[in-house]
Write a protein that binds this DNA or RNA. Structure first.
Lengths: 162, 162
DNA sequence: TTGACTTATTTTATATATAAATCTATTTAT
DNA sequence: ATAAATAGATTTATATATAAAATAAGTCAA
């Protein structure tokens, strides 16, 4: 499968690593602004808010601020602000935990569930348009390779998902 | 090379597109925070500032605010703020353009050149560590695939670089 | 039980980012 | 030559993000 390539110098290796990172940034800035723009236009929520709603949608019983923060990989302070704004939007409820009075649990309101469903449709459509030129094989191969970047063999990966 | 795969449903296609995007986000949040943290610790500049310095480093004669904004793909207002903060840091100079009095040209100071050189070393090192587990082939293949995502065939890509 | 940690969250200060309004200078049409 | 339109940059208002400090509630050892 893989053809033989001459051994790379340290410098070449470093250049290739940089190229990979620039590639990630290019794809990110190719898709993210479009996603953000269309979500805001059509559903009045940002990608950040969408991400919060998506997590809460997966957990109908709700998630604590800390769990949200860990799942979204953003700071506690950031989650505080996002959830407050979503509360103002009427999309999320926040209630004190019954077993720990320090803890607060965020849950989607019915309006939040509905808005998330609309936003998810838009999200899917935008990705479809941005990636429409990719054939199935490239789509799957790229995804697999990206996975192999994050799922390091031995290192101290902080554990994904649940 | 590519094996035959059964035709995908529309829904499967959409799921795979989403998986690709989530993969991009995972890699981004795997590398970006580490890059930002280490750059700040060791050279006292953020990734955003690094990006500005990197562009100015490529153009010793300097770049206008608008050119910087286009190259970095960020808003004019953002560039205004970044360049002002870099000026306070003593890393960038801003002078009025000689041929257009509306235009301002940003240039690296000697301190800026030196700081960029240090930061570039850190940047390279961090990427080296984050990507050390990838073999040469995966590194190059992934980069090529990422390129094929952004370089669309017919569409209205706003033109990259020069 | 009290005091010392630890944990969950918010607040504060600051940086980064956008969009829209504004300001000033240049260009274009008449 | 002047008025209208355009272009380059900044300012303003707001959202998003972090780190560090503060607040408040829980845990645990003595």
């Amino acid at each position: 499968m893989a053809e033989d390539t001459p051994a790379q110098t340290h410098t070449d290796r470093r250049k290739n690593e940089t190229r990979l990172w620039l590639g990630i940034l290019d794809v990110h800035s190719f898709i993210y602004p479009e996603l953000n723009k269309r979500l805001k236009e059509l559903t009045a929520i940002s990608v950040s808010k969408f991400d919060v709603l998506a997590q809460l949608n997966r957990y109908p019983e709700g998630l604590s601020m800390g769990d949200l923060s860990a799942r979204l990989k953003v700071s506690n302070g950031n989650v505080s602000g996002l959830v407050n704004r979503l509360r103002k939007d009427g999309l999320v409820d926040k209630t004190m935990s019954t077993d720990d009075r320090r803890s607060f649990v965020a849950v989607l309101t019915p309006a939040g569930q509905q808005r998330f469903a609309e936003a998810a449709r838009v999200h899917t459509e935008v990705l479809g348009k941005c990636l429409s030129h990719l054939d199935t094989q490239t789509l799957e191969d790229t995804t697999a390779m990206l996975k192999s970047i994050v799922n390091m063999p031995d290192n101290k990966v902080p554990s994904q998902d649940e």
